[in-house]
Each structure stands twice: as C-alpha cells, then as structure tokens.
Write a protein that binds this DNA or RNA. Structure first.
Lengths: 147, 147
DNA sequence: CGGGTCAGTTGGTAAACCAAACCGACTATC
DNA sequence: GATAGTCGGTTTGGTTTACCAACTGACCCG
C-alpha cells in the first residue's frame, strides 16, 4: 500500500463544515445575537462574497437557518439550528484558550451563565464525570490495530 | 465612521493560529501520539509544503515544539506544549459534534479516561459549576452598550 | 427624482493550495 | 558498491480560493 488514506474522523468531518475561514466567526456572531448580513460582515470583517458562500455552506450543513423577515424587499436573518447551538463548546473552548494563551488577549465577548458568572469548558469522563484537567489524565487511543 | 472594525476577540485570535486548513488536524495527530512528518502527512492528507508551513506556524504560535531525535540525518519530532495541550477541549468538542451531527459519522478516534470511558466536553458555569446543556441556559452578552 | 439601506453579484488580482518532482543524508539489500 | 528506500523537507507549475472594489436590484425617505 503506497499511500495510506487520511484518517476518517469526526474531527475532520466537522472541520470540513466549520473549519473554513470565517465560518466559526460567523457562528460566533450568530451566537451573540447578530443575525443580519451587514452586521455579520462588519463584525467579522469577512469579504461580502466569501460571507455569502459561508452562510450558504453553513446553511447546507445544517448549522444555520435562513429566515425571511421582510417579504417585499427580501431580507433575511440567520439563526442557529440545534446542531449549530451544539457547537457552543467549540466556540467557548477557542475563546477560553485565547484568553489564557494569546500574547495580547483582546477583550472577550462574555458568555455568561444566568447567575452572571462566566462559562468555561471542562473535559470530563463521560461515565464517572471526573474532570480531566491538564491533559495528563487522558489516554488517546487509535483504533486498535489487531494482530 | 464608514466601516466598523471587526470585533477583537480571543476566538478570532485563536483562529488566526489554529484556524487555518490542516492546523487542527495536525494537532489531532500529535494528540494521538503521531509525531513525525511523514506520518502526520499520511494521516491528515495535507500536502507536504503546506504541512511544513503549518508546523512552522504552530511552532511559532507556541502550541508545538520541534525536537531533533536524530543528529546525523537530521530527523524531527513534534510535541505539544502546555498551550497545545490546552486545545484539547476544542478537539474533543469538534469530535463530539461530528459524532452527533454528521450525516455519516466516521469511526472516531477514542479519547478515553484512565477508567476506560470516553471523554466529553461540558460547558459549565465557572462559579457555580452547574452544567449548561442545551444552550438555553446561556446568555451571550456583547460588550455593554449603555444608554 | 436623488440619496440611502440591504443583500448580495461581478470582475480582476493576489494569495493559498495542491500534486508531483527533486534533494541531501543517510540505511538496507544485493 | 550500485540500487532502492526512508525521512524531512524544498522547488516547480498549475488550479483554486480569497480578497477587494465596484456594481446591481429592490425598496424607503424626502
């Protein structure tokens, strides 16, 4: 076998959808309640044509929905689907990493709990619920290659 | 003010580093213990020149370290820094989302706890520690615009 | 009718990406 | 000791994508 195929993996599949430039920034905006083309464009800085393409691919991928809020000059708003909302941990993870490790951390948009405190991501064991901080507690396994 | 500046935000800053194509797949491989150029190339499918550039930028960004493991034909391995390990929640989040929402979820590399169970990301309140599932419990705030 | 808003579209250029070939320093096999 | 293969790249050349500015069409306001 001269060249092995790249690893099939849900990380890669997810990145095919939201890993392109601007995609996650668009989602950030929609998370923050910014739903209109012009505002998303201004807040992300994405070129308008690229933004159009991203919005379409995010819609096709099922993370955004496009709602017409005006009929006669057709005007649209973009909303998160359930799948889109499920990307929240990714956004929070990126935000948290940036606040901790970027050389000059910019002011962060706050994702807050109803009690007013910030929100953070925790990697926990799915069964015992124990938090795994520091990475040392995790064993990462490839698919078993028997024999 | 004709055009507002794009929002300064740690999410954007983090994406400047790890948001380029292949970057997070490279990190996935290093997380899984794949440390050599040829293996990372095979498992990600990234073109060799692009991979070289990504490895350099990830190194410059402080998430990877390059170690020479052979002197005379110079050979290298790539390792995670503490900052690199801190991106684990992002990878796990992407993996989890893909497993749940991709139309045909591919076999997932397992990130397991030492107890043998899978690992998941939880978004929790930083203070009361309460998990916020379903997105409905989170209030996302922009910087306050008073008045 | 002129100007402004909104959600794009169009056209031209710059950059990124990609596959394949090449390279230097080895090692392993004949 | 010539041939083949490994490893970590670099170089080449062509394709795709991103980017930016300007434009469009449908409306609203005056």
């Amino acid at each position: 076998m001269p060249d092995t195929k790249p690893r099939a993996c849900p990380i890669a599949g997810t990145l095919d959808l939201v890993g392109e430039r601007w995609a996650l920034l668009v989602l950030r905006e929609v998370f923050m309640g910014v739903r209109r083309f012009a505002d998303i464009q201004a807040n992300t800085g994405a070129p308008r044509d690229v933004l159009t393409k991203r919005l379409r691919s995010l819609e096709a991928g099922g993370v955004l929905e496009r709602h017409r809020y005006l009929e006669r000059p057709p005007r649209f708003e973009y909303h998160l689907t359930a799948a889109g909302q499920a990307l929240e941990p990714v956004l929070i993870g990126l935000r948290e990493w940036g606040m901790r490790y970027l050389p000059d951390p910019p002011p962060a948009p706050r994702f807050i709990h109803t009690c007013g405190a910030d929100v953070v991501t925790r990697v926990v064991c799915a069964e015992c619920g124990q938090p795994l901080e520091g990475g040392g507690l995790v064993s990462v396994l490839e698919e078993a290659h028997p024999g």
